[in-house]
């Protein structure tokens, strides 16, 4: 065995160990991640038919050995021509944007507090932020179903205090969707903010204060610019998944809460229109890929600074 492996000639013929290390995950991702996208792209140009699968082939061999490629642009024309889809895209961006802003406003002071907490406390608080992320996402969204309901405790407390006389319609509103989004994605906001604030050199803040800078100005001129990277990463990590979210609008939103993830789901499962669902997915993908690349660059820069 040993003799065989140390045989140089044989070693040169076989791929080296590093080849296998790279190839196994690489091939997996090519087959199960990249190729599927090419298929989505292909189907987005196909025609719908009543069959299983409900799409017409795009590549067809004719009898004279000619490969015909039939690309139908009608799905994209349909998507861009229908106000419903445009509205769903715009509304997804609006909902994700507002949710991101709310998460930042709540997350920044929390991350600040955790990073500046006494040593023993810091780990505990950090764990408390991460813990909900480990408990079921679906069940955490579900928890709000009970809280926000007509007979739920929130309406109960408000009525008891005499602030309202009739239960408010909280569920099936955009308000409920915002709550669900901020609730689910807050840890994603806090984690990058925390690591940015923790790295902050306190001497800089002290120096600014010593030079007569007022606290609010120190925050605006020193703290905020130095934690810019964390803010950026946190916002992208909340915004990107929020745009395509399905579960939260489906459970907490009303029938008129149009979000693109939900529209893709309904086209696919409800209307069985695979080509239109694919076309919508492609448009969403193009929309988000710019943001994903941006996120990668922000993280790479963060790593470079760290090193």
């Amino acid at each position: 065995m040993h003799g065989l492996l140390s045989n140089r000639r044989l070693q040169r013929l076989l791929p080296s160990g590093s080849w296998y290390v790279i190839a196994a995950p690489y091939l997996w991702l090519l087959l199960f991640f990249l190729i599927p996208f090419l298929i989505v792209l292909k189907i987005s140009f196909a025609n719908i038919v009543l069959a299983m699968p409900p799409v017409e082939p795009v590549f067809v061999w004719t009898q004279d050995q000619i490969l015909q490629i039939r690309l139908h642009f009608s799905n994209f024309a349909f998507v861009f021509g229908d106000d419903l889809y445009i509205e769903a895209f715009l509304n997804s961006i609006k909902v994700a944007g507002i949710s991101t802003l709310l998460a930042l406003l709540l997350g920044y002071p929390m991350a600040y507090g955790i990073a500046r907490a006494p040593n023993g406390w810091r780990n505990v608080l950090f764990l408390l932020v991460v813990l909900p992320f480990f408990t079921s996402f679906l069940l955490r969204v579900y928890a709000w179903l009970g809280l926000l309901g007509r007979n739920g405790p929130i309406n109960g407390v408000l009525m008891h205090l005499g602030l309202i006389h009739e239960p408010l319609q909280l569920l099936q509103t955009d308000f409920a969707v915002y709550i669900g989004m901020v609730y689910s994605y807050l840890p994603f906001m806090i984690l990058p903010l925390y690591s940015a604030i923790e790295k902050l050199d306190l001497n800089l803040l002290e120096a600014a204060a010593d030079l007569g800078c007022r606290p609010a100005r120190v925050f605006m001129k020193v703290t905020l610019p130095l934690t810019k990277q964390g803010i950026f990463a946190g916002c992208l990590l909340v915004f990107i998944p929020a745009v395509g979210e399905y579960v939260i609008p489906a459970l907490l939103g009303g029938p008129d809460t149009l979000m693109i993830g939900r529209v893709v789901w309904d086209e696919f499962f409800g209307n069985r229109d695979w080509p239109v669902a694919s076309a919508l997915a492609i448009v969403l993908l193009v929309l988000l890929s710019g943001l994903v690349l941006l996120l990668q660059r922000v993280q790479a820069r963060g790593e470079a600074i760290h090193e």
Binding site: I39, V40, L288, L295
Partner: peptide, 16 residues
């Protein structure tokens, strides 16, 4: 795969 919307990942895998 971490950041892409799940509807896209799910749809693409099913088509595969």
């Amino acid at each position: 795969p971490m950041v892409l919307p799940e509807v896209i990942t799910g749809l693409s895998l099913l088509l595969l």
